[in-house]
């Protein structure tokens, strides 16, 4: 177990050569490669960090923008809501007024219709009544109704009080034209003579009398001398009847369900 010094020297040389070779082929390339890789990783990391910072800044900017948008949107929405409410209220008012106007118009129209209908009804009913009464009188009294009416009219003239007669006479003396007798139907000559006689006897002897017809009288006779008028007609009776009826109807309308007013 001896030391061979030649071998020792050779091994020292071998070792030093190995150190140099390994430094040349192993340590330097490996360490420099590692250093370069680390440097590159460092660079990439710093780049990535910078990029992340930038992206985060961008994200926060976008977030703020979005919040601002959100706020302005809310504001606009509330404004629009207020406007819509105001518009709706205005439209409702308009429609209400329009409806009110239409209703009153409709009511007026209805009133007109009612009045026209009542007038028509009155006229027709009057005619009908006169017709019926005339026919009944004709059938049962043996004379036409107009003749009876004229007779009655002549009696009425004779029964006028002095005051009335005076007024009529004064009117006849002032009047330039003839006295006008109107009846609902044409009078027969005999009846006309009877009426003319009654006028001459009761009012004025020399007054001229002309005859005419007026549907509105229904049944009866109207004598007009100047501005004075004497009328005995079913229309008047009917008018009076209508007035009474209206009063009764309105009285019962005012007291619905109540006892009717005393006739």
């Amino acid at each position: 177990m001896q030391i061979d010094w030649l071998t020792v020297a050779a091994q020292v040389v071998n070792f030093l050569v190995l150190v140099w070779l390994l430094q040349r082929f192993l340590y330097r390339p490996i360490t420099s490669a590692m250093a370069r890789r680390e440097e590159r990783i460092e660079t990439r990391l710093s780049e990535a960090k910078a990029a992340r910072d930038k992206v985060e800044a961008e994200a926060s900017r976008l977030r703020e923008q979005q919040q601002a948008l959100e706020a302005s949107r809310e504001e606009m929405l509330s404004e629009a809501r207020q406007e819509a409410d105001a518009l709706r209220a205005r439209l409702e008012d308009d429609i209400r007024e329009e409806m009110e106007a239409k209703r009153s118009q409709w009511q007026a129209h209805l009133e007109d219709e009612r009045e026209a209908f009542a007038a028509r009804l009155r006229q027709r009913a009057g005619h009908q009544v006169i017709d019926i009464v005339g026919r009944v009188l004709e059938d049962y009294a043996g004379s036409d109704l107009a003749g009876q009416v004229a007779g009655t009219f002549a009696d009425r003239l004779a029964a006028l009080d002095a005051d009335e007669r005076e007024k009529l006479s004064a009117a006849a003396s002032r009047a330039k034209g003839p006295a006008r007798v109107e009846s609902s139907v044409a009078l027969k000559p005999a009846v006309r003579g009877q009426v003319t006689r009654a006028i001459h006897e009761c009012i004025a002897q020399d007054i001229e009398v002309e005859y005419g017809e007026d549907d509105e009288l229904l049944l009866g006779i109207r004598l007009t001398i100047g501005e004075q008028t004497v009328e005995w007609s079913a229309a008047r009776f009917l008018h009076r009847l209508e007035t009474t009826l209206d009063e009764v109807i309105q009285g019962s309308g005012r007291r619905p369900g109540g006892a009717p007013a005393a006739a």
């Binding site: 001896q2 030391i3 020792v8 091994q11 020292v12 071998n14 070792f15």
Partner: peptide, 9 residues
């Protein structure tokens, strides 16, 4: 021992 001596040296 020569090698180890060389390394030690």
């Amino acid at each position: 021992l020569s090698t180890t001596a060389a390394l030690a040296i």
